[in-house]
Write a protein that binds this DNA or RNA. Structure first.
Length: 233
DNA sequence: GCATTAAACATGG
DNA sequence: CCATGTTTAATGC
């Protein structure tokens, strides 16, 4: 693998499990599906609900949880505007989806989709890309968890966020993102106390500073070097 | 090397 | 006020 290819690969990944590959072209077929509104904190998909429709998020934001065997809910991903929820085929998974903003979704049954596909032969490929984006993320996530310690996963997350979404300032990089420490913990699989400790260490070393709606990275190279160690604690 | 626990503190609707 | 998020230290696996 050449360096340029590797760099490209690093830049095309999904860092935060959020919306993956939005399919905005599906919006024009909303009249063929079933639209429904959900208030903030209401359940969009209740556990055990039948899987008989492809869902697109028209507005708002939904948190998709997997219910584990012991009954706890663990984050799978966030679904924002034009994100698809693949609920067309039955699975073993027990999913609970909660609107974290007032949200609007549209459900397409298999028959709805047949009609859409007849009209738009590109549509199946867009939907495939959405599924691929999700599969790629979670495959990579398995490798990530198996390859790096929790503290390093936190550093790697922020580094990749910066490379992918960071805006170059005069003397720093700015990542505009609303991401709580609890969210970082859920995404990386590290404990939230560990996230707090790591972020404070990075702040004391003047490498970065994170607040409610942005992360400022002052020393990206140092962050990269630290993320290549075996641990940071 | 980090999770867990608990308890204190901080922010904001 | 309460809910939610953050910090810190002690202890455990």
């Amino acid at each position: 693998m050449t360096m340029s290819y590797r760099r490209k690969m690093d830049n095309c990944g999904v860092v935060i499990p959020d919306s993956f590959y939005p399919v905005d072209s599906l919006r024009q077929y909303v009249h063929l599906g079933t639209v429904k509104n959900y208030a903030k904190n209401s359940s969009v998909i209740i556990p055990g609900e039948p899987t008989n429709a492809l869902i697109i998020v028209l507005e708002g934001r939904i948190r998709i949880n997997l219910i584990s065997d012991d009954g706890r809910e663990v984050l799978l991903y966030f679904a924002g505007k034009n994100c698809l929820l693949g609920r067309l085929f039955p699975t073993e998974d027990n999913i609970h989806a909660v609107a974290i903003e007032n949200s609007t979704i549209c459900r397409f049954t298999k028959d709805n989709l047949k009609e859409i596909f007849r009209d738009n032969e590109e549509m199946p490929f867009d939907i495939l890309k959405n599924y691929l984006a999700k599969a790629s993320y979670f495959m990579r996530q398995v490798a990530e968890i198996n390859s790096y310690n929790p503290t390093i996963r936190i550093l790697r997350l922020i580094y990749r966020l910066c490379v992918l979404h960071g805006k170059q300032l005069e003397n720093a990089h700015e990542i505009v993102i609303k991401l709580s420490q609890a969210n970082i913990a859920e995404i990386t699989g590290a404990h939230y106390v560990t996230v707090s400790r790591v972020l404070n260490c990075l702040k004391k070393e003047k490498i970065l500073n994170k607040n409610k709606d942005k992360i400022i990275v002052y020393d990206l190279e140092k962050l990269k070097l630290l993320s290549e160690q075996s641990t940071y604690y």
